[in-house]
């Protein structure tokens, strides 16, 4: 029972963070929501008894992709700000 409640909460949190990543007006906040989404995905993989994917998702999906996105956002917004 508790497990099902946790799964339901996790599912809602996944959908909510994905929605915020697309709908938040500010792009930097949207990227942070996307990183949070990656960490929640990592939890979901652990719930699906796939610890290998959970490890990879935490390191790659949340960490590396987040760093790449923030770096690109910084470069593009700096160029716009510099004009």
């Amino acid at each position: 029972m508790m497990v099902l409640v946790f799964d339901g909460l996790l599912a809602c949190a996944l959908l909510w963070s994905a929605w915020r990543a697309l709908a938040t007006p500010r792009l930097d906040r949207a990227i942070v929501f996307f990183i949070a989404f990656g960490l929640l995905m990592s939890l979901a993989w652990a719930r699906l008894s796939a610890p290998d994917i959970a490890l990879a998702e935490a390191a790659i999906g949340a960490g590396l992709t987040g760093a790449l996105l923030l770096d690109a956002y910084g470069a593009i917004s700096r160029r716009k700000g510099g004009k």
Binding site: A18, A21, L22, L27, A30, I53, G61, L69, I76
Partner: peptide, 21 residues
């Protein structure tokens, strides 16, 4: 917006992975 489309594309990928497993 291009960056946000990349986010959307990644969400699609994550969805496909979840369906697979």
């Amino acid at each position: 917006d291009v960056l946000r489309r990349i986010l959307a594309f990644n969400l699609m990928g994550s969805g496909a992975f979840l369906v697979l497993v």
